[in-house]
């Protein structure tokens, strides 16, 4: 299979996903009992005011018409206006998406930076205490309620020790660096503002740890499995027989090959992290898409909810595409088969 073929098939699937996702979210959002017009009309609103708002927002039209109108907008890159903030959904997402991505990527970095060495150690010393330890860490990771872990680390590092801030992205008393990438840590470096960078780094540590902890174990287990497979291969035995040191065999021969199947897991993990951030963002008051979508669901702000789902689903499909392409690029075996 060629690169182009993969890309074409994935893009076709993307259209299907876009259509499916919008139909599903639109249907469900409209099943939620409650009328967004009443929500923004406020206390004491008369039926006339509610009706007036409904007309303004186009909510008085039959649902299929509303859906088609929405789809028409999406195709032209217009996700409609948020009912809650009255601003274009895309504008809101443009503000919140980089925050979520920055958090997800930092969490992924954390998970891999610790997960890979743990996975390697656990494969090299299989069935030894370190292996059991990694397994416990991995299982605890996927078993920990992130919303609870978040509260505990806030209590410890902010409440008791006072080392780290409890929430937000940056100290609000600091000037925000000029927005280039939307990633505060990068933007502050580009602006040469070390104080802002330090503050952004301090703010991201706890949420990224909380979010990354769940995936740390997943990564470690995947690396362990791939390493075990590689260590049994003939070329390793040959290398060992040729007198290569154990360290060299593990890190220069086995690990690079073991990383190839792990790419899939990392890709999937990034997708999970993007929307797994919903709860973590709520606990840490992280101004990202997760907190935005939770508030939007509560306010029946379905243009915002749909905008979020479409964007994250797109990201999910694109990440998968990227994973497939990287996979093909780095693994000669797959290319040869095709």
């Amino acid at each position: 299979m060629s690169f182009l073929n993969v890309i074409r098939r994935r893009l076709m699937f993307l259209i299907l996903v876009l259509f499916g996702v919008t139909v599903i979210t639109f249907t469900i959002s409209n099943l939620i009992p409650g009328d967004p017009a009443r929500m923004i009309a406020g206390d004491r609103a008369t039926p006339e005011i509610v009706q007036n708002i409904r007309e303004d927002l186009g909510l008085d039209k039959p649902l299929p018409i509303q859906y088609l109108r929405y789809l028409e907008g999406v195709v032209q890159g217009d996700f409609g206006n948020s009912i809650r903030t009255r601003r274009p959904v895309l504008e809101d997402l443009r503000i919140f998406f980089p925050a979520t991505l920055e958090l997800a990527l930092t969490a992924l970095f954390f998970a891999t930076a610790l997960g890979i060495p743990l996975g390697v150690a656990s494969a090299v010393w299989k069935d030894k205490p370190i292996d059991h330890f990694v397994r416990v860490i991995a299982v605890t990771g996927i078993s920990t309620p992130a919303f609870w872990l978040g509260l505990l680390v806030i209590l410890l590092f902010y409440g008791n020790l006072g080392w780290l801030p409890s929430g937000g992205r940056i100290d609000p008393s600091l000037e925000m660096p000029t927005r280039v990438t939307g990633f505060l840590m990068i933007d502050s470096l580009l602006a040469g503002d070390l104080t802002a960078f330090g503050s952004a780094l301090k703010h991201i540590l706890l949420p990224a740890f909380t979010l990354g902890f769940v995936h740390l174990g997943v990564v470690a287990r995947q690396v362990r499995a791939a390493m075990l497979e590689e260590l049994q291969q003939d070329y390793i035995r040959t290398a060992k027989a040729n007198g290569l040191s154990r360290f060299k065999v593990v890190f220069t021969e086995a690990l690079p090959n073991a990383m190839i199947p792990s790419i899939t897991v990392l890709g999937l993990a990034l997708g999970d992290l993007l929307y797994g951030a919903v709860l973590t963002e709520t606990v840490f008051a992280w101004p990202g898409m997760g907190a935005y979508v939770v508030n939007s669901i509560q306010a029946l702000d379905f243009p915002a909810v749909m905008g979020f789902t479409v964007v994250v689903s797109l990201a999910y499909v694109l990440i998968n595409l990227a994973v497939d392409l990287i996979y093909m690029a780095v693994d000669p075996r797959i290319r040869e088969v095709s």
């Binding site: 499916g20 599903i24 939620i32 929307y275 919903v278 979508v293 939770v294 979020f308 994250v312 999910y316």
Partner: peptide, 19 residues
């Protein structure tokens, strides 16, 4: 496939709110 690409937590939240 489509259901799997919708962010599951959000789907569950919306479904739970709808029900």
């Amino acid at each position: 496939d489509v259901v799997l690409s919708v962010p599951s937590l959000v789907l569950i939240m919306a479904l739970a709110a709808a029900l």
